[in-house]
Amino acid sequence: MSDTKKSFLIINRKAPYGCSAARDALDVALTISVFEQPLSLLFMDDAVLQLLPAQNPAGIGQKNLSANLAMLEMYDIDQLHVCSEALQQRGLRAEDIELNINLLDRSGIATLIKQHDQVLSF
């Protein structure tokens, strides 16, 4: 494992289940945490739909994404940033989300991107 550190930002933009992006991003996040690199996750656009509670994908043969997101803290992945505009556009409130999140406006998102070394998009 390398000695150098790079900070990673994962940008999520897709809703869960309909395509593999949410799952792919989560697997990358867990791997980055194994390498003990600084990591932040950003949920913007339709990716805020990944954060809805009460997901039950048993009927579509998929694994529960929200259960996995809830476990991220156990892997010391606690930098979950959420685009407040994306929540608003979908009629969601921060209180609807049962995860420990940090709300960001546009300038907050721009700053977040600026602060990280490598940005991976899903």
Partner: peptide, 12 residues
């Protein structure tokens, strides 16, 4: 897609 919109909203 929303790619361009999202990008324009995230520029420094």
């Amino acid at each position: 897609s929303s790619a361009l919109n999202n990008c324009l909203a995230s520029l420094s």
